[in-house]
């Protein structure tokens, strides 16, 4: 079976690298790209589309929720998993909305 292609978007370098190492070490997964900002991910995933993107919420320029909505609009087939320590209902609700396809 082909491994699941994962990409990561997280602005904290240590956490990003640790998580990438963990996924890389998990059978059945490969990490095809890591990104330190949401705005850098958009133009770069076209060539090799990941199956899943692990997305941080709180990043300095564009946040993960806005990026999720944009990615979903262009590539509805990409799954996005939101990484968060927030228990803030509004942010979680916004994230759920952003991952929904444009037309249900």
């Amino acid at each position: 079976m082909k491994p699941i292609k994962a990409a990561l978007c997280e602005d904290n370098t240590t956490f990003r690298e640790s998580l990438a190492g963990f996924i890389e070490d998990t059978p059945g997964f490969e990490v095809i790209a890591t990104f330190s900002s949401a705005e850098s991910i958009l133009g770069k995933i076209v060539a090799d589309l990941p199956d899943i993107i692990l997305m941080d919420i709180d990043m300095p320029v564009m946040n993960g929720i806005a990026a999720t909505a944009l990615i979903k609009e262009q590539f509805p087939q990409v799954n996005i998993l939101i990484l968060t320590v927030y228990e803030d209902d509004q942010k979680i609700f916004d994230a759920i909305l952003a991952t929904l396809p444009a037309t249900c």
Partner: peptide, 22 residues
């Protein structure tokens, strides 16, 4: 707390799991 402590503890957690596995 969220940015500095949260991210560092998150890394410790993940790195420990990776080390155990290895």
């Amino acid at each position: 707390l969220h940015d500095d402590v949260g991210a560092a503890l998150g890394s410790i957690n993940i790195l420990s799991k990776t080390a155990t596995r290895k």
